[in-house]
């Protein structure tokens, strides 16, 4: 057997899986967005009708803005935690596992943990706040508290970004830091002038990826913790479209919504690719 055939054969299981489990459903969903479909009765082709309806759906606009706000707070926070942990644990091995651990906890279990942590009556978080004189917060009944609780919960599941940032830091030549020591540069200056600029391409990649990842990662936990409530305070795009599809059986409408979300992430990704390409040109040897 030729080498090409061997490679094709080895690649085949993945290609088949990707086709059946990802590409085909994605294309199906893409086509659904042009139909009025409840998957019980016969679907009706309505062209861009779903998109037209989305344009006038005020609830959708509200969800979109809330999702944008969520991303604007959660992504920098998650990146800060991941990169901060990576830089702290770069010279120390101890603690690396702990930094990664929350990311391997199943979403449902993670949500269960936080239901306990955030319990308004006997939860440890309110107890901690009480120690510094802050009155108990009703995490599940106050809108903004729930919104930030969701963000807080996601600030810990940054294991993958942590590993990537750690690897990026390890790639930086140690001699640059010898130079910094010899020249008397303070740690803060080195961080600002050397470490972060050199890690910038990786950080940009992580940031763009996290726009999609943080929205997806929030789904299971948010669904179990608040189910979008109270009063829509944590209703983000994935939950809204899930409700639309699987609760209200408006699959076409839900697909159109996710397609827009996908295009948004794609646009961000392409923009980032151009930025990083310019950086790389400046950095290459």
């Amino acid at each position: 057997m030729s080498e090409k055939r061997q490679l094709a054969l080895m690649f085949a299981p993945y290609a088949l899986g990707a086709l059946l489990l990802f590409i085909a459903p994605a294309l199906y969903s893409l086509s659904l967005s042009l139909y009025d479909a409840d998957l019980l009765t016969e679907s009706r082709f309505i062209g861009f009708g779903n998109f037209a309806e989305l344009a006038g759906d005020e609830l959708f606009h509200e969800v979109l803005w809330r999702s944008a706000l969520f991303v604007a707070i959660a992504v920098p926070l998650r990146l800060f935690v991941a990169v901060g942990l990576a830089l702290l644990l770069f010279r120390v091995r101890a603690g690396r596992t702990a930094a990664f651990l929350p990311s391997v906890v199943p979403d449902a279990a993670w949500a269960a943990v936080w239901i306990f942590l955030l319990n308004p009556v006997y939860g440890p978080l309110n107890w901690l706040l009480g120690l510094v004189g802050i009155a108990p917060v009703s995490w599940f009944s106050s809108g903004w508290a729930a919104f930030f609780a969701i963000i807080l919960m996601l600030a810990f599941t940054v294991g993958e970004a942590f590993i990537v940032a750690l690897a990026a830091r390890q790639e930086l030549p140690e001699e640059l830091y010898d130079v910094a020591r010899l020249e008397g540069a303070r740690p803060w200056y080195v961080l600002r002038a050397v470490t972060l600029p050199l890690m910038a391409p990786v950080l940009a990649l992580l940031a763009t990826r996290d726009v999609a990842v943080s929205l997806q990662a929030t789904f299971t936990a948010t669904y179990l913790l608040t189910d979008g409530g109270p009063d829509r305070a944590t209703l983000l795009l994935p939950i809204y479209s899930f409700d639309m599809g699987f609760e209200l059986l408006r699959y076409g409408y839900a697909s159109a919504m996710m397609l827009l979300g996908f295009l948004g992430c794609l646009a961000l990704g392409v923009a980032q690719w151009f930025v990083v390409k310019r950086w790389r040109l400046g950095l290459s040897h």
Binding site: P173, E175, L176, D178, V179, R181, L182, E183, G184, V194, P197, L198, A200, G282, L283, H285
Partner: peptide
């Protein structure tokens, strides 16, 4: 500390900041 010894060093790799 290294910075207070009045020494400067040129490394084999040159150790220039690429950015």
């Amino acid at each position: 500390a290294p910075a207070r010894r009045g020494v400067a060093m040129v490394f084999q790799s040159f150790a220039l900041f690429p950015h």
